[in-house]
Design a protein around this nucleic acid. Structure first.
Lengths: 265, 265
DNA sequence: GAGTGGTCTAGACCACTGT
DNA sequence: CAGTGGTCTAGACCACTCC
């Protein structure tokens, strides 16, 4: 049961971080010092640092000193918004207008962001078709939303939405990307073709970003991506929209409120 | 804009995996072959493999060949359970009995698991106290639940719950761990002191496990941990329970259903 | 035993940051 | 410029699995 040096070093530093001996923002000892202190090669000490970075505990490097990572402020994405959007559907345009495109506000940033949105019509994959209970290959509208930081070009939020074309054929405006951002969001869009959403199911998992994901999102090491698959079901029980959103886990908190029926008397 | 060899190799393999050229379960080329093919040192090729493992794409090693990781079956943790538990509160013992300790069923495993649970009374940290709106240092009951695989000793699920002692003082049975698993779960427990839960707020984030977390959960590389902070609020608007659950992201899917009020006529 | 991947070393070289 | 960390190499040695 002998553990490699790298783990010993990494765990020692982690313990110091957790105990508060190394507070967030504190500089770590230089790598060659670590190597000396543990009498190992600098390569092994460096590996320990790499491990800690993958655990999301430290940042820096590249000329800048290594330091204990500071926590990001987390943008809250609240499921209460679903009801909020629904309440606005029957309200006049002036009230709806400020409520922009569904789930894509970044929450944290005050300075301007670049908002992109692409519409196209594709053939449903078997996966998508199964969820909608439509034949595979049927036409679906795919909408890709994306907010980017205009300075760095890195993604801030991103989601892909699918809607069967059959459901919205009666209102061509819904297939036109130039109408975005649509005042009141997706629920109002669907209301124009007589669709009322009865409930929304959010399914959440997390996964590690690939190297290209890391670049696009401008992520530090050790930051997972949260994935939220949202299924909107209308009053007739049909699945009418699927949305697949991705958020960086270090800046995001997903909040879901479950109201409970009162005890029967 | 020249990218390191390790990233080139890693991205090449990742592309092959995503395109299906390397299906799940397929063996990867040996590291020394990669090194030869890309004319780099085995060290660099190995680093590429390490990167892919941290992205959750490959598994194996240690004598076993490296292979494309196969997806785990995901246990679904559904917020519908909150209402289900509430409905049972007013039902007779026989119906409640099979509904075990709240959120700790593993879902996937058929074979027996070891269930542990520890009760103790501690002083509220400022963090906990703030949430309950009680003075810091007030007594809270802390319950730690833990299911482990008896064969490997690795964790399958784990959660920590806090309840202010003040709220449950009138029923000493609630402070006694030997009554677990309590038929009907926490909502029934609280009902014995007259508390009715009105709504439950789940807050979800993800983070990477530390090296010791990895060991305890028996996780492969590149698997984040999902954290679910659950706040239970009673009909008087008081926060009556806080629960902090952790799940391995590769085996877990969190599902939240938001019912929406019908349009007013 | 052969072959695999994992740990570890010593050292060269580059990129970046600060003074 | 000095000092930092990041990339990369060549090679020794160990642990493990499979035949």
């Amino acid at each position: 049961m002998k553990r490699p040096i790298q783990l010993l070093i990494a765990d020692d530093i982690r313990t110091q971080i957790e105990s508060g001996a190394l507070p967030p923002g504190a500089a770590l000892p230089a790598i060659h010092e670590l190597a000396e202190r543990w009498s190992c090669s600098v390569g092994s000490a460096r590996t320990a640092i790499t491990l800690l970075r993958e655990q999301g505990l430290i940042s820096g490097g590249r000329g800048k000193p290594l330091m204990v990572r500071t926590q990001h402020r987390r943008a809250i994405r609240d499921s209460a918004r679903h009801q909020l959007e629904k309440d606005l559907v029957r309200r006049p345009l002036e009230e709806r207008a400020p409520v922009g495109t569904s789930e894509l506000e970044t929450g944290t940033s005050i300075h301007s962001v670049k908002f992109d949105c692409t519409y196209d019509v594709i053939r449903a994959t078997t996966n998508i078709a199964d969820r909608f209970k439509i034949p595979a290959g049927a036409k679906v509208l795919r909408r890709m939303y994306q907010t980017t930081d205009p300075d760095t070009g890195s993604w801030l939020a991103r989601s892909v939405s699918h809607i069967p074309v059959e459901l919205i054929r009666s209102n061509p405006d819904l297939m036109d990307a130039s109408n975005e951002p649509w005042p009141g969001g997706t629920q109002h869009q669907l209301s124009t073709v007589g669709i009322e959403i009865a409930r929304i199911v959010d399914e959440v998992t997390a996964q590690m970003p690939t190297t290209v994901d890391r670049q696009r999102w401008d992520l530090e090491g050790g930051v997972p991506l949260l994935r939220n698959l949202r299924t909107s079901i209308d009053t007739a029980g049909r699945v009418v929209e699927l949305s697949d959103a991705t958020y960086p886990a270090d800046r995001t908190l997903l909040r879901f409120t479950t109201p409970l029926q009162p005890w029967s008397q």
